[in-house]
Every structure is written in structure tokens, then in C-alpha cells.
């Protein structure tokens, strides 16, 4: 099964890096969507289905916490897994995200293996299933 993934981060270069890591790790991806902030992500989600959201926390316009609150209030979106990739380290804030329903938090800076392992765990895939190498090209 190929997953559609939404990457939400106000840094274009970080979105590229995350996308590249996912592509090279063998995770099966159907479509990638990108948004600069929570508001853009919500607009995108009105028209497109995603299986996983990877989001930053600190973003202008609408931050990751507000995005998560909106998602959980929407019956059609509340079950989409959300994983935060963030510089936020405050335990209370991270716990607030988990309490609201985030599936996990990956702290920046991160090793590529952290993303791969986390996504495999959340999406229920394992190395033994033999993930296919994606067609994601190395050239950005």
C-alpha cells in the first residue's frame, strides 16, 4: 500500500530533506503534499486525502498545535495520524500534543533513521515486509 503524506513546515528546505529521507528509506509513498503552515495544510486537506501528516510546531499564521486542534475537531480528519518533527523540547508542550492525539514527536535535529523507524512503526510496516525502494530521485 502506498501512503499519501502531507509535510507541514515553514522551511522549504526542511520539507525537501524530510521528503528525501522518506523517499530513500523505502517507505512507499503515493503522493507528497506540502504546506508552509497549519492554515495552508487545512486548505489542502479539504481537497486531498492523506494517510499521514508530518508537521512542525512553530510556524507563522497557524502553528502545529492549532493545526492539531482543528484536525481533531473535524470528523473526516481526526483519525489521520499526525507526527510532529519539531525543535520544541518542553515536556509539557510535547505532552499537550500527545494528549490531543498526536502519534509522536521527533525532535530536530534528527537522524534519518529516526524518521524511518517512527513511520514504519506508525503505519504498521516492518522491514521483513520488504519495502520497495521508491522512485524518488536524488536530485531536488
Amino acid at each position: 500500500m502506498a501512503y499519501n503524506i502531507l509535510i507541514v513546515d515553514d522551511s522549504k528546505s526542511m520539507r525537501k530533506v524530510i521528503r528525501k529521507i522518506i523517499g530513500l528509506s523505502g517507505f512507499k509513498v503515493g503522493e507528497y503534499w506540502e504546506a508552509e503552515n497549519g492554515q495552508e495544510a487545512l486548505t489542502l486537506l479539504k481537497e486531498n486525502w492523506v494517510d499521514l501528516i508530518l508537521s512542525d510546531f512553530h510556524m507563522p499564521v497557524m502553528n502545529g498545535l492549532e493545526l492539531l486542534r482543528h484536525l481533531k475537531q473535524d470528523e473526516s480528519l481526526r483519525d489521520v495520524p499526525v507526527v510532529f518533527i519539531t525543535t520544541e523540547s518542553n515536556e509539557n508542550r510535547l505532552q499537550e500534543l500527545l494528549t490531543l492525539g498526536a502519534r509522536g514527536c521527533i525532535r530536530k535535529p534528527f537522524h534519518p533513521e529516526e524518521i524511518r523507524a517512527y513511520l514504519a512503526k506508525i503505519m504498521g510496516e516492518s522491514d521483513e515486509a520488504g519495502m520497495a525502494v521508491s522512485d524518488e530521485e536524488c536530485d531536488f
Partner: peptide
């Protein structure tokens, strides 16, 4: 893109520094 990389680097340094002084 280069400027964006520098911004993101600063963002991450700020985050890790914050974690140290919290």
C-alpha cells in the same frame, strides 16, 4: 534556498539551546 537553510539551522540551534537552558 541557501537563506532558508541558514534560517532553519538557526531555528534548530535555538531549539536545542532552549532545551539546554530550560
Amino acid at each position: 534556498e541557501l537563506q532558508d537553510v541558514i534560517k532553519e539551522l538557526t531555528n534548530m540551534i535555538g531549539g536545542v539551546f532552549k532545551g539546554h537552558i530550560d
